[in-house]
């Protein structure tokens, strides 16, 4: 149907303008000096130098990576048993659990994150419960703990659903075979279930790490104005200080880090697959 091919032309024109052009603008600004006149741009690496020379910016980057990493690990530790439990439930109950997990994600992220501000406040419900038990009240809001909590809260459903999907695809007769061959529960879990669910864990990692490292409203709402992550740094370059060149350079650094981590998770996935085949 050659006549159908023409139907793609408008979209090709559209994405060249609205998807490809902005990416070029980010590259252009990242490698040029200040001044918005595109015609007389000068190539420079100063924007990157500025980032890597100043320890303040390096600290921000390391903090973002640390928070995203802790969030991802926590999501695996909580998400795996949850996904496992749901996958092992009976058919009718399964869908009900999936609905319970997905329902909160339908509600606006900011609205849900904002609720934690009230819960975590010094005179909020958590501290009230603590004081009833007899524990001295602790500052929770505007700490790294609050930021990580907010991220786990927002991104955990993605991890659970990925692991759940991987586990339901698994053929249960494999477990029976393992049991017949003399493996106990722990061994068959480690040798059969865990490797087969690994692709789910890996795509879960992507779905958690990527938004966590670039998030800027969770650190702003729960970490307070003083708590800066890479996302906040980019935001301030574009919306307050107006240094688009530096902002573009930071974005580029972030994208490269994300690409490297995506590549690494993909590689783990592949080596795992080939190893399994070799065995």
């Amino acid at each position: 149907m050659k006549s159908f091919r023409k139907m793609t032309y408008p979209y090709v024109v559209w994405i060249s303008f609205i998807v490809v052009a902005p990416m070029f603008l980010i590259l252009l600004y990242a490698f040029t000096k200040e001044g918005n006149a595109v015609m007389d741009f000068v190539f420079t690496l100063d924007n990157f130098k500025k980032f890597f020379v100043d320890s303040v910016f390096i600290d921000v980057l390391l903090r973002s990576l640390r928070v995203a990493l802790v969030t991802t690990v926590l999501c695996i530790l909580i998400g795996y048993p949850a996904g496992y439990f749901i996958a092992k439930s009976s058919e009718g109950v399964k869908m009900r659990w999936v609905l319970l997990i997905t329902f909160p994600t339908w509600i606006n992220m900011l609205v849900r994150t904002y609720a934690w501000v009230g819960i975590l406040q010094d005179d909020g419900i958590v501290n009230n419960i603590l004081s009833i038990i007899g524990v001295r009240s602790i500052t929770l809001l505007h700490t790294e703990f609050a930021v990580i909590l907010g991220m786990v809260y927002n991104f955990l459903p993605f991890m659970i659903l990925q692991i759940y999907t991987a586990l339901t695809k698994m053929d249960n007769s494999l477990l029976e075979a393992a049991a017949d061959l003399g493996a106990d529960r722990v061994r068959s879990f480690l040798k059969v279930t865990l490797p087969l669910s690994l692709p789910g864990v890996l795509s879960g990692i992507t779905l958690v790490f990527l938004p966590a490292v670039s998030s800027f409203f969770i650190p702003k709402l729960l970490g307070g104005g003083q708590y800066v992550m890479v996302g906040n740094l980019i935001e301030s370059q574009f919306l307050t200080s107006g240094d688009w060149n530096f902002g573009s350079a930071i974005s580029l650094i972030m994208v490269i880090i994300i690409m490297i981590s995506l590549y690494l998770t993909k590689k783990v996935d592949k080596t795992e697959l080939t190893e399994r085949r070799a065995n």
Binding site: F17, I18, A21, P22, S214, G231, G247, S251
Partner: peptide, 10 residues
Amino acid sequence: IVTAIGLLML
């Protein structure tokens, strides 16, 4: 945020 700043500059 990367998509956003690209569009902002465009």
